[in-house]
């Protein structure tokens, strides 16, 4: 397992993509720091990067990586190693690379230009979203044999979670506006990792808008120890279930 992971990791870290992604992150973060005058604006701009760009790149990269390494994977499967190990080594390599890119690309400029605790939450949320979308990408990859199709499925995951789902939520909220919706929206947020990460970050950044009556309810929930436990728990489930499911399929898959 570790030997496999080591080789995959070497392979991936040396790749052009890893370097480009990290450089891109550094560039974006540095320019945000240069343009914005105060830390709160920096965090808000970074929030948008975390919510949009990070999941997109994670998803696309994980899918392409899976198919680019398909031959290596098939070769490994012919060896006396567990399928689980082969699968996990590939996935973990991707996750470690994506997380490192965020840590270095965003963390380094932060260390130089200053940061506050809320920005650390931002980093953590970014890494969590990377893991979620890498998992979803692998799930899409094992579901099909075709690279293009897999990328299509991954992209639709991304569009669904960052756009369509919110549209559905808005529609539901609009339709049931006459009812108390606090708990319902809370439940709906739990069903979307992007929304969940966004709310967790917003609670650290600009909560002034969330201080109305409904906002106070959310604030109370997400601010309490129970709420934090629950949200991080749910986010953890979001990180784990696509991995488990795709591993199950991978184990039985006929290559």
């Amino acid at each position: 397992m570790f030997k496999l992971l080591k080789y995959s990791l070497y392979d991936i870290v040396k790749s052009r993509f890893a370097i480009l992604y990290t450089l891109f992150m550094v560039l974006v973060t540095v320019s945000i720091y240069q343009i914005s005058e105060d830390l709160s604006k920096v965090s808000l701009s970074l929030l948008n990067i975390m919510l949009m760009i990070v999941p997109l790149i994670s998803a696309v990269f994980a899918t392409t990586h899976f198919f680019n390494n398909l031959e290596f994977t098939e070769l490994m499967l012919a060896q006396p190693v567990k399928r689980r190990d082969v699968f996990l080594s590939q996935l973990l390599a991707v996750i470690i690379m994506l997380s490192l890119a965020i840590l270095i690309g965003i963390g380094l400029p932060m260390a130089i230009w200053g940061a506050e605790s809320s920005l650390l939450v931002l980093l953590a949320a970014g890494i969590a979203l990377s893991i979620v979308f890498a998992g979803l990408a692998f799930l899409a990859s094992v579901l099909t044999r075709d690279k293009a199709k897999a990328i299509g499925i991954t992209l639709s995951f991304w569009i669904y979670f960052s756009l369509v789902y919110d549209g559905l939520v808005l529609y539901v909220i609009y339709s049931f506006a006459d009812y108390p919706l606090e708990k319902a929206t809370l439940a709906m947020v739990m069903l979307n990792p992007v929304d969940l990460a966004r709310i967790i970050m917003l609670m650290q950044l600009d909560i002034s808008a969330l201080m109305g009556y409904t906002g106070a309810f959310f604030q109370q929930f997400f601010g309490s120890a129970k709420g934090i436990m629950l949200t991080s728990g749910v986010l953890l489930i979001w990180m784990v279930w696509p991995v488990l499911l795709s591993m199950r399929i991978f184990k039985k898959k006929d290559f």
């Binding site: 756009l163 919110d166 929206t185 929304d195 966004r198 808008a209």
Partner: peptide, 20 residues
């Protein structure tokens, strides 16, 4: 306007959809 009508929509603050 949406938040004024339906306070629960505050949940979607800063989402991509709202920006769009």
């Amino acid at each position: 306007v949406i938040v004024e009508k339906i306070p629960a929509a505050v949940m979607l603050w800063r989402s991509f959809l709202i920006g769009l």
